[in-house]
Amino acid sequence: MRVFSRINLPGLLSFLALLFLWEISARSSQVIQSYFPPVSEIIRSLLSLIFSREVVAHLLATLGRFLTGYLLSALIAVSLGILLGHFRFAYALFEVLIEFLRPMPSVAMIPVAILLLGIGNAMIVAVTLYACTWPILINTIDGVRNIEPTLIDTGRTFGLGRWKILKEIILPAAMPYIVTGLRISLAIALILVTTSEMVVGGSGLGFFILDEERSLSTTNMYAGIVIVAVLGYGLNRLFLFFEGKAMAWHRGATARGLL
């Protein structure tokens, strides 16, 4: 019973109805079909594509760039955020720069990256890293600044030095904020990887989607979009799975008003 109650039946039905409407509209008109090929056709090409060596290679290219950029940015932004959140002078030093760069759409940096790194993996990873850094950095700084001062005093009375306090107390206490930043950046990373791939070309799902559009293989283009969507969905589910494991303490604590 529990499994059934968790499925949003009305939502699922309306989604299927929409696909059905798409299907019959596409089949009713040649003109519509050239823009919106029937869903059944898209699914057919999707099934053949996901087993093709070419698409698997594109998928792996995208995934590799995504993971490199995202994980590097997590490492850099969390470390930097803890330092900037903890040392007020360091934050003051970089505040203007951060506030200037943060609201700027990261895709605007793609030409700069091309200029500096040429067209290739390095450039795509750099742009992804850059874009993912901001949400993680800002949230980490916020998390460090919102730490209960008693926690720091607890570390001090137990004789912990500054670095030990950062590692043993500030990092875990700021983790709920950090995780929020990491979740926002997960979506951003995929956006930046696929966008950069469209600009740079050569490989990756972003390139594949644009390339199929240019070759007038509209069905394959839609299939590519579905693959990216499923990839994004899967990565998000994976993230939520690990978050659930790691942050169980936080859900319990907040539910009881302790944090």
Binding site: T150, T154, T157, G159, I169, A173, M175, A253, L259
Partner: peptide, 20 residues
Amino acid sequence: GPPSNLVLVFQEFNKSLFAW
């Protein structure tokens, strides 16, 4: 600075314990 042979137990234990 905090002496190594002394520990303070805070009044606000709920803020002093490590929730994680």
